[in-house]
């Protein structure tokens, strides 16, 4: 168990890092990123939302319930200032369903983001029409701004 015992060496390294970056010593080597929305904005260069794929189909593997299927959105962000969020929202008011996914991005984190609200089971009793009206929204939001990138009305078909 001498000083050359690798786990001991790593343990010492971990301990020193934790204490040195901690509240008392406060070396700014490791900065924990906030995950909540702040000020700022992001410029979005391209968006892919396959809205035609939004539909209602039967569940598989014995789930015995219909699902509102919402495809993932892909958002390419060129530049970010502050800490805004990307919000992707699909709602079908007649079924009382609103699905959303958000991503808070920070300064410097440009790139392509996938937003996946997932699928939502539909209350079996409420499904009585062949198609429903839905809305798709994609926005950049912060405490300063709210910019709508996509706002679209869609028809959601029930395929059974």
């Amino acid at each position: 168990m001498g000083p050359r015992h690798p786990p001991t060496v790593v343990a010492l390294f971990v301990l020193v890092t934790l204490v040195v970056t901690g509240p008392i010593v406060g070396v700014d080597a490791v900065r924990t990123q906030p995950t909540t929305i702040g000020d700022g904005t992001a410029s979005v260069s391209s968006v892919q939302v396959p809205t035609s794929e939004i539909r209602i189909t039967d569940g598989r593997f014995g789930t015995n319930v219909a699902y509102l299927r919402v495809p993932d959105a892909s958002v390419t962000v060129d530049s970010v200032t502050g800490r805004p969020r990307l919000l992707y929202q699909v709602s079908v008011p007649a079924l009382d369903i609103s699905l959303e996914d958000e991503r808070v991005i920070s300064e410097g984190q440009h790139g392509t983001y996938r937003l996946a609200p997932g699928d939502r089971a539909v209350a079996p009793a409420s499904l009585d029409q062949g198609a429903y009206r839905g809305t798709v929204l994609l926005r950049v939001q912060s405490f300063e701004t709210a910019e709508t990138i996509v706002a679209e009305n869609v028809t959601v078909r029930v395929e059974q």
């Binding site: 890092t17 934790l18 204490v19 970056t21 924990t32």
Partner: peptide, 11 residues
């Protein structure tokens, strides 16, 4: 008090 909470769990 000594270690930032998130890093504490990691540690």
């Amino acid at each position: 008090v000594l270690i930032t909470p998130r890093l504490l769990l990691l540690g």
